[in-house]
Amino acid sequence: MNILADVLSATILFAVPLLLVALGGMFSERSGIINLALEGIMIVGALLGCHVLRWLDPSVQSGAMHGQVAVLIALAVAGVAGILFSLLLAFSAINLKADQTIGGTALNMFAPAFSIVLTWAILGQGQTTMTLPKWVRITQETVGVTPNDGFFQRFIFTSLYLTTFLAIILFAIAVVLLYKTRFGLRLRACGEHPQAADSVGINVYRMRYAGVMISGFLAGVGGMSFVFAVGGFQSDVAGYGFLALAVMIFGNWKPWSILGAAVFFSFFRVIGNYAASIPFLPKFENLQGVSTYLWPMIPYVVTMILLVLTSKKSRAPKAEGIPYDKGQR
C-alpha cells in the first residue's frame, strides 16, 4: 500500500509540469501559433526561478520570510521570464511571419546554452548544478499535522509542493478562460479561421500575441515545477517540453483531455523509478541500465502508438502554423 501511495504521489508531482506546459501549448496553438519553444521556455523559467530561490534562501533560513512565500515569488518570476522569452517567438512568428518551427527550434537551442552561461557567471566557472533548498517541500510539519505514516498522509505529503495547488487553480482558470469568456472564443476563432475573426473586428495579431504569452507564462511556471519534481536543475528539462507537446496533441487540444493525458504520461514516467519494488512488474535482472533507459523509453513508445491510434480523431486548430496575412485571399 505504501508503494501505491508513493507512486500516486509522484505521479501527481510529475503530472503538474506536463499539465501546465501542455495547457500553455494549447493556448498558443488554439490562437494559431505552433509553440515548439516550450522546452526552451521551461528552461528559462526554471533557470530564473532557481536563481531567485537561491537569492531568497538566506532570508528564509533566518526566518525573515516564509518558505512558501519565497516559492511563490520564484514561480511568479519563472512565469514572467517565460512570457518575456516567448515574446521572441511571437515577434518572429506574428510580426515577421517567419517559420514557426524554426523559430521555436532556435529558442530551444538558445535556452540551455544561455542557462549554462548565466549559471557559470553567477556561481563561478564550471558550476552548472542548482540544488533546491529543503524548505520548498510542504511537509506534515510545515502545515502542523501530526506526523503519521498512513496511506492518505503518505499519498498527500510524500511529494507535495505549492505547484500542485497552483496547477489546480491554473487549470480551472484555463478551462474557464478558453470556454466561458469572450476572450477564449476570440482566441479559438483566430486559430481556426483568422480571416473570419478579422472580418468581425477581432485583432488577430493581438490575440495571437496573447496566446503565445499565456503559453510562455504557463511553460515558465511549468519549468519551475519540473525542477521541484526532479529536485534540482542542470540547465535542461529532459525533453519535457516536447513530451508536453505530445500530451497536448494526445489531449486533442482540449483542457480536460490534456489533464487525463498528463496524468497518464506521468504515471508511466514514475512507474519506472519504482519498478524494482512493485511485485508484479518484470524485473529484467540480467539487463544493465533498466531504470535509466528501458523504463523511461516507455512513455515515448506509448506516445507514438497512441498518436497513431488517435490520429483519426485528432483535430488540430485549422490555421495553426500559418502566419496571418491580412492581404491574403
Binding site: 521572441l88 518572429s92 523559430g103 532556435a106 537551442m109 538558445f110 540551455p112 552561461v117
Partner: peptide, 17 residues
C-alpha cells in the same frame, strides 16, 4: 563552450525570417 550555441541559435533565429 555553450557560448557557441548561443551564437548558433541566434543565427537560426535570424535565418527563420
Amino acid at each position: 563552450t555553450e557560448n557557441i550555441d548561443i551564437i548558433i541559435s541566434v543565427i537560426i533565429y535570424l535565418a527563420a525570417f
